[in-house]
Amino acid sequence: MRIFLEQFLNGLTIGSFYALVALGYSMVYGVMKLINFAHGDLFALGSYLGYTVLVIGAGWITQVLGVWGGVAVALTAAMLGIGIAGLVVERIAYRPVYKAGRLPLVVSALGMSIFISNGIMAIWGPRFQAYPPDAIPSAILSFGDIKITVIKLVTLIVSLGLMALIYWMVEKTLFGAAVRATALDRDTATLMGIDFRKIILFVFFVGPALGAMAGVFAGLNYGRIIFNLGWTYGLKAFTATILGGIGNIPGAMIGGLLLGVMESLFEGFVSGAWKSVFVFLVLIAILIVRPTGLIGEKVAEKV
């Protein structure tokens, strides 16, 4: 039971990373019908930005603001920086290709992904980088014989809170309605007076910013990061997006959390080496039964 609970919590944590990254995939996909392969690498870049802030600021930010203040500064910087990076990627790699159709867009996204991950390697080097230990909050809570680091708890609470916020924004506000309308039919939405550029700004800023947050939290939780982090996490997050139903905000969250928990439990009770195989098999099985994901809407093409 203890192992179960621990693995479950681990799964929720990693699942919340997947979910945050998946949100970015799903938002961009909803609006542009593009799988933003560079998104996973933006997540990694966010992690590195946070790392740099903590390394540089470990001396004084942490001293002035305390460990948690340092974490907050790193998170904010990474989210802002990566949000802007997301906009830049859209401007240089996607907007000029948008008219050419979906396949060139995919290649452009792959190119951007390769560019960013190798850019990270060129700047920070090909080896693992360790988050400075004294910048990571080290408090541990224990409930009976279950121990949980405070940073893990904070990660979970902040991630879930942010997801709730995004959910509220997209599902309950007027602006969210505009985003959803654009996702359904861009032309009609534009004719109704929705400014497509604002929607683009929103999804390409908020999506990567959420990814960056996940990136910093991943670094804080696991302690070390590597340049191709974006490929592994990106792939899992993309899987989560499809699992939930792509283009669907709650779907991305549920898909991410579910994937993380499944993976963790399988790792804890069956085998770590085969966990990805298990995850993909589950995904395929689900898609055979529900071809558009768990809560993806059934899109019947009008004939």
């Binding site: 240089i92 290709v97 060139p104 290649v107 390769i114 390697m121």
Partner: peptide
């Protein structure tokens, strides 16, 4: 050496911008 894939990624993007077909 380590920059070759960096160039390669950028080249893919540039190619798709100027010759999407």
């Amino acid at each position: 050496a380590s920059y070759k894939l960096l160039f390669f990624g950028a080249a893919l993007v540039v190619m798709m911008i100027f010759r999407p077909g």
